[in-house]
Design a protein around this nucleic acid. Sequence first.
DNA 1: GTGTATTGTAACTATACTTGTTACAGTTAT
DNA 2: ATAACTGTAACAAGTATAGTTACAATACAC
Lengths: 144, 144
Amino acid sequence: MAANSQFAMAVHILTFLAKKGDQNLKSDMIAQSVNTNPVVIRRILGQLAQADLVASQTGASGGTRLALPPEKICLVEVYKAVSCGEVFALPIRQANQDCPVGRNIESVLCNLQKAIDRSVAEKLGEFSLANVLEMVDLEDTVAP
Amino acid sequence: MAANSQFAMAVHILTFLAKKGDQNLKSDMIAQSVNTNPVVIRRILGQLAQADLVASQTGASGGTRLALPPEKICLVEVYKAVSCGEVFALPIRQANQDCPVGRNIESVLCNLQKAIDRSVAEKLGEFSLANVLEMVDLEDTVAP
DNA sequence: GTGTATTGTAACTATACTTGTTACAGTTAT
DNA sequence: ATAACTGTAACAAGTATAGTTACAATACAC
């Protein structure tokens, strides 16, 4: 399938919201920065709103803003908000339960999966949205 | 898409090979343990062979065996052998280059992606195939 | 040498997920 | 009232995976 880029888009969206500060931004404006359709943006904003990372307002002069200051928004939360969150998948079909390997490999793989997911979460935990904003601004000053 | 389970299948396959020791195993037998088609197994074995983790022989009484002892096979190598290897994808469409955020977010996300991938690789580096085999055997002894 | 078993690989199908798009009901400022 | 938004459903298009069939190439066994 097309690879899932929702986390990347979510970070882009949040960075954009952080940069523009305390105003209701329209999905249309955000879509222009991300270069996609406003509905795609609103879908991701919906997930971020459920995680209480952003707040939206309907109606005229509505829009979306951050629900927390950028320092308080951690990339783990963003990742959890948009992703199903497994680095590798387990096979759909059940392995052969009459085989000593097939019978037991699944739980071992499942534990391994959890260990990997934890280490991804830990690494993402090191970054806040404020950090991302800093990095973006830095890129802009040193750009070619 | 169907989520990519090649890494999980690869670990299963290698564990099976390790368990059966120094003999040429047919893709047919392995397929029975994994509960899939032999061609699916051969496709994965092909990738593992390219990474020099297994060795195959064509012809009658051919098959596949480990190219290294289980202690020397690390799960990072397996992951690299079968996976394209990114935890999250970057958007396909290029962001708006006229926007300060769109112009710079891509390289920031790309660096973040690399950091995450490194931490996954580090965690996988902690496990060898021998470890997996131990865990599978342990599961079998304490099974309900 | 002939026959048989097995890998390697191409080609195709079915399925499923993601993105993009249109459409529209519901909501709120002015 | 009107206009400008969000939220969301529905659908199309693109693409990746897994499964399957088929077959050429290869190597052992006799």
